[in-house]
């Protein structure tokens, strides 16, 4: 199993690479875990305020973005199946679709945030001045969590764009596809976090 391509000096160890990626994802889990703990502890203190503020978020956009991320996650998983079945063109199509959906997600987010900014609802914004502490905290958490999540969407999309390029350059093939797998793992994490963000922020009853 010795690689005949001399350009790769490091031994190719896909399992080790995936293990490293998972370890990194655990640290991400703890990062978001901390924010969810903040959410949970403030929810117990300001339940009524959280309900009032949460109702102002658009459930429709939240639901659409949930579906977008789930479908894009499917595309990424399907791209791995395609590349392993030696169909790089189909794999590129899937990865490209996932990136496109990621962009649509960000555009939705842009309009969502833009609308709230327009209404003066942002940290230290005029509309939040005479709101209760609980509502101010809810929006603070909303911007922190969705902002950090949005950053992850941008990073994940960039990784997928690299994967797309590598498939095109035949650096990702049916035999060597761990980069696509790891980019995919990251993308699924983004989806995973949104699975919790959506009900906690958009669907508070």
């Amino acid at each position: 199993m010795i690689s005949e391509q001399h350009e790769h000096h490091l031994p190719y160890d896909p399992e080790g690479s995936r293990l490293g990626m998972w370890l990194f994802l655990f640290s991400e889990l703890l990062l978001f875990g901390g924010l969810f703990i903040l959410y949970a502890s403030y929810l117990t203190k300001y339940t009524a305020d959280f309900v009032i503020a949460g109702k102002e978020l658009s459930r429709t956009i939240g639901a659409i973005n949930t579906i977008i991320l789930l479908v894009s996650s499917y595309f990424v998983a399907a791209s791995i199946t395609a590349i392993r079945r030696n169909a790089p063109r189909i794999a590129m199509l899937y990865v490209g679709s996932a990136i496109t959906l990621g962009l649509v997600f960000l555009i939705n987010k842009y309009f969502e945030w833009g609308h709230k900014f327009h209404l003066g609802i942002y940290p230290r914004g005029p509309a939040l001045e005479d709101r209760t502490n609980g509502e101010v905290i809810f929006y603070g958490l909303y911007y922190c969590v969705t902002g950090l999540h949005g950053l992850h969407v941008i990073i994940g999309g960039t990784l997928l764009a690299f994967a797309l390029y590598y498939i095109y350059r035949k650096k990702i093939t049916a035999e060597r596809f761990v980069f696509l797998e790891n980019a995919g793992l990251y993308w699924h994490l983004v989806d995973l976090i949104w699975i919790f963000v959506f009900p906690l922020f958009y669907l508070v009853v």
Binding site: A77, L185, H188, P199, L200
Partner: peptide, 20 residues
């Protein structure tokens, strides 16, 4: 909130087991 969390946990388990 507990119903939402239980469903979210089920969803994330599916993502982790099959997509990931």
């Amino acid at each position: 909130v507990w119903i939402a969390l239980v469903i979210a946990s089920a969803k994330s388990s599916i993502v982790v087991l099959y997509f990931m």
